[in-house]
Simulated assay, not measured.
Amino acid sequence: MEVTLLWILCAALIVAGLAGTVLPVLPGTVLVWAGIVLGAWIDDFQRVGTTTLVVVTVLAALAWVLDYVAGLLGARRAGASRQALVGAAIGTVAGLFMGVVGVLFMPLVGAALGEYLAQKDQHRAVRVGVATWLGIMLGLLAKVVLAFIMVGLFVAALLI
């Protein structure tokens, strides 16, 4: 019975982590990683061994880095000001309280508003806002893909 509960916890961590790759409130890839490590431990690392865990850990770290760097790279590429970066961060936090639409679009609004306040140029503000948003969305997509690769490697290791 205890092992069954541990496997349920393992699955719950992975599912919560997959949800967290899209919802910034949850540390997505960290939860997926924790579920995988728990699953490996439950099985005494017999089927999910060191190599798989190292690869999954590297993928989790890469996803975490991409999550934070992608939006900044998009903003920097568009020549965003410091105020635009602060605006994107504030927009991200504000978006948490507005559901999925807020999470997806408030960073764009925050970056554009921050850039407008800094430069007083509406066209530049829109360009910076869109570039920041595209960076964030590409980072999100990469994080989701990496999380599913992590889960795929775990399931393959369990089944093979």
Score class of each variant (00 low, 15 high):
residue 82 R to K: 13
residue 17 G to P: 02
residue 37 V to C: 09
residue 132 T to S: 15
residue 10 C to R: 02
residue 150 M to Q: 10
residue 81 S to V: 12
residue 102 G to A: 10
residue 122 Q to G: 01
residue 77 R to C: 06
residue 160 I to H: 14
residue 7 W to C: 03
residue 154 F to N: 01
residue 110 G to K: 00
residue 91 G to W: 01
residue 72 L to A: 12
residue 54 V to D: 04
residue 74 G to A: 11
residue 44 D to H: 14
residue 128 V to L: 08
residue 19 A to D: 01
residue 76 R to D: 03
residue 94 A to W: 08
residue 157 A to Q: 08
residue 109 V to G: 05
residue 66 L to M: 13
residue 149 I to Q: 00
residue 9 L to K: 02
residue 8 I to W: 09
residue 56 V to K: 00
residue 150 M to L: 06
residue 110 G to M: 07
residue 5 L to F: 15
residue 123 H to G: 05
residue 21 T to V: 14
residue 74 G to D: 03
residue 112 A to M: 13
residue 148 F to N: 09
residue 101 V to W: 13
residue 22 V to R: 04
residue 27 P to G: 08
residue 48 V to Y: 08
residue 129 G to H: 05
residue 20 G to E: 13
residue 20 G to L: 13
residue 107 P to D: 06
residue 50 T to H: 07
residue 17 G to A: 10
residue 78 A to D: 06
residue 151 V to F: 04
residue 87 G to M: 09
residue 154 F to P: 00
residue 78 A to Q: 06
residue 64 W to M: 13
residue 112 A to L: 08
residue 39 G to S: 10
residue 104 L to Q: 02
residue 94 A to F: 14
residue 113 L to H: 01
residue 117 L to V: 13
residue 125 A to F: 08
residue 41 W to C: 03
residue 141 L to H: 01
residue 106 M to Q: 03
residue 128 V to F: 11
residue 40 A to Q: 10
residue 68 Y to S: 07
residue 105 F to D: 02
residue 115 E to W: 11
residue 89 A to M: 14
residue 114 G to L: 09
